[in-house]
Design a binder for these strands. Structure first.
Lengths: 248, 248
DNA sequence: GACTGGCCTTGACCTAAATCAACCGGACGA
DNA sequence: TCGTCCGGTTGATTTAGGTCAAGGCCAGTC
C-alpha cells in the first residue's frame, strides 16, 4: 500500500479496508501531491523513546508499522499508560509546541512525520484534514472513556480480559479475521507494560494471566503467544455489555 | 453575554475572556447569522437525564449554564463518570446517531442545541467549525488522559485533592479568580457523584474529605461549601508535578 | 558449558479501600 | 409535631490487589 502515510486524511473508502482509515489514490489525489512534499519517515527500535514529555515536538505523525505508547509518569515513578498507538493512529497535536506525554516505541516502529508548521498551514487550506482529524480524535476520546471505566471500576481479571479482547480484535481485523471463534495472537506488550496500561502491578498481571489460563479462557504458549479457544467466553470475562454496543 | 451559544465556533478573541472560548459579535458575524437559524435552547432540572446511553440523539449541544455529567454503567450497576461538562463544553458527536453515554444534569442546566443534520452541513460549509471543534476535542482528550492517571495510579486522598483542585480552578476562572491563595466554592457534586468521578465508593470519599479537613488542607462548612486556605498545599496533596506543566 | 540479565512466575504477607452496618441531621410532607 | 427520606458520616470487618522476596526460563555471549 503506497499511500499509507495519507491514512489520516482520507474519508472512508470502500475498497481500502485497512482499519477504515486507508486511502486510495483516486480519492484525495491532490492532497497526496501536497503531502508528499512535507512528509518524511522515521524509524525507531523497540524500547526507544520517540519524545519525552515536555520536549519540544515540531512534528505530527502517523504510525506506519509497529506499536508505540503514550505514558504519564508521576514524580515518584508511578506510571500510567494513556495511549496505545497502532498502525494508522495519529500522534501529536497541532497548535502545541511541547509533547504532553512520553512517546515510546514498544516494538520496532516506523512513523510517517509531517513538520508541524506546513501541516498546520495545509490544515487551514484543506478542510478535509481537520474533519478527518476531528473524527479520529473523537474515536480516541471514546476509547479513552472506555479505558476510564476499565481503570475506575473493573477488577484485575476483567481488566486483563478486556485488554486481551482489545488486542485480539485489533489484531484480528488486521489479519482479515482469522477463522471466527478460534484465534491467536502475540502480545505486543511486556507484563509491565500491560500493568501500566491497566493500572495494576506486573505481579497481578502475571497472576491473572495464569488464572485465565487455569480456567481455560485462554491458552499460553511461551510468555507472549495467546490462544483464544472461544472469544465469547473471553468477552464474558470483560464485564462489558454483551451486545458489543457498536455505536456508529 | 448574548452569543454564548456561539462559543464553540470561535477562535480565541482577546476581549471575550470566558474560558478562552467566548466569542464577540465582530468576529464570526456571518456564522452567527447562520447559527441563529438552527439553534434552540433546552432546560433540565437537577437530577434529570438528558439522554440515556443508546438512545437516539439527533442534536449536538453546548452547555450554557449548569453542570452535566457523562457516565457509563456496567450491567451489575457499577458506574464510572467519564465526562464532566461545565458551561461552554460541548456534547454530542457529529456523525453518530446514538448517544454512547448517559448524560445527566447534576444541577439545573441550560443547553444550547443544534439539530445534527444542519449542524453537520454547516460544518462542511464552514471550515472554522471543524477546526474549533477539533481543538476542543483535543482539550477533552488531554483531560481524559489526566483523568486516566488519576484513576489508575493515584491514592484515594490524591484523587480527592485532585478533584477539589480541578473544581477550584474551573470555578475560580469563572469568578475572575478570587483573592489568590484563599478561595472557596460550593461542590456541584454529591459524595456519590464524586465517587463515580474518582472510581471510589462514597464512604471512602467521605472519609478522605474528613481527613483533609482534619489535616487543615481544606475547611468544610455544611456538606458542600469548601474553603481552601492555601491552594498550594492542596496541590501538594494531588501528587501532580508541582510546576503545573502548562503546555500550550 | 557457565554466566548474565531480562522477563516472568509464584508464594507469603500487608494494607488501602471496599463492604456492611449503624447513625446523624436537615428538609419536607402529613 | 412527628415521621421519614436523603445525603452524609463514622466504625468494624473483609478482601483484592500491592509489596517483598525467592526462584525459573531462556537468549545472548564470553
Amino acid at each position: 500500500m503506497a499511500h499509507q502515510d495519507l491514512q489520516l486524511l482520507s474519508h472512508d473508502c470502500g475498497d481500502c479496508p485497512i482499519r477504515h482509515r486507508a486511502v486510495c489514490a483516486r480519492c484525495e489525489a491532490d492532497e497526496l501531491a501536497r503531502l508528499e512534499q512535507i512528509k518524511y519517515y522515521r524509524s525507531y527500535q523497540a524500547g526507544q523513546t520517540v519524545v519525552w514529555s515536555g520536549d519540544r515536538m515540531d512534528f505530527v505523525a502517523s504510525v506506519v508499522s509497529g506499536i508505540a505508547t503514550l505514558t504519564q509518569t508521576m514524580e515518584d515513578g508511578r506510571r500510567q499508560m494513556v495511549g496505545l498507538l497502532l498502525p494508522s493512529d495519529f500522534v501529536g497535536r497541532p497548535g502545541r509546541a511541547q509533547a504532553a506525554y512520553d512517546v515510546t516505541a514498544t516494538t520496532d516502529l516506523v512513523m510517517c512525520c509531517f513538520r508541524k508548521k506546513p501541516f498546520e498551514e495545509m490544515m487551514v487550506a484543506t478542510p478535509h484534514i481537520a474533519q478527518r482529524l476531528l473524527e479520529m480524535t473523537l474515536d480516541e476520546l471514546d476509547a479513552a472513556r472506555e479505558w476510564m471505566l476499565l481503570l475506575g471500576r473493573k477488577t484485575a481479571r476483567e481488566k486483563i480480559a478486556s485488554l486481551l479482547a482489545i488486542i485480539a480484535r485489533r489484531d484480528a481485523s488486521l489479519k482479515l479475521r482469522a477463522a471466527k471463534g478460534k484465534l491467536a495472537f502475540d502480545l505486543p506488550l511486556t507484563r509491565e507494560e500491560m500493568a501500566d496500561y491497566l493500572g495494576l502491578t506486573l505481579e497481578t498481571v502475571s497472576r491473572q494471566m495464569s488464572a485465565l489460563k487455569r480456567d481455560m479462557v485462554i491458552g499460553l504458549e511461551g510468555k507472549r503467544h495467546v490462544m483464544v479457544p472461544d472469544f465469547d467466553k473471553l468477552l464474558e470475562e470483560t464485564g462489558d455489555d454483551s451486545d458489543g454496543g457498536f455505536l456508529v
